[in-house]
């Protein structure tokens, strides 16, 4: 599924124009990105949490050359699905 398909669903279900729907989908993604870029976690109840975590410097290896390199400390985004989303993915399996 792509952004365009999501925008089409918004257009169909909410009744906004295709253009408005696409802009709103972009707004939502940009709002989440902006929040994470300023290292603010994003909690979407019923869906999941996006968290910014700091990773320390560590020793790594170039898998192609086998050469050892230092991986610089960095900030990364992790996603933790809400119990509701996890349940949604396992509905058929449980019945």
């Amino acid at each position: 599924m792509t952004k365009m398909e999501i925008a089409n669903l918004v257009h169909e279900r909410v009744g906004l124009s295709k253009r408005e729907s696409a802009e709103l989908v972009d707004d939502i993604l940009e709002c989440i990105r902006g929040s994470l870029a300023s290292h603010e976690n994003v909690k979407l109840s019923g869906f999941g949490h996006f968290r910014v975590r700091r990773k320390n410097e560590r020793r790594g290896r170039n898998p192609k050359t086998g050469q050892e390199i230092m991986i610089t400390p960095r900030y990364v985004v992790t996603f933790k699905a809400s119990p509701l989303l996890k349940a949604k993915l396992n509905q058929e399996d449980e019945s």
Partner: peptide, 24 residues
Amino acid sequence: VVNTVLDAIGDALAAGDRVELRGF
């Protein structure tokens, strides 16, 4: 709109689809 977007992602995943959001 926000709920529709989050539901759409959840539904796609429940159907076994991957959801690819460019730049996100």
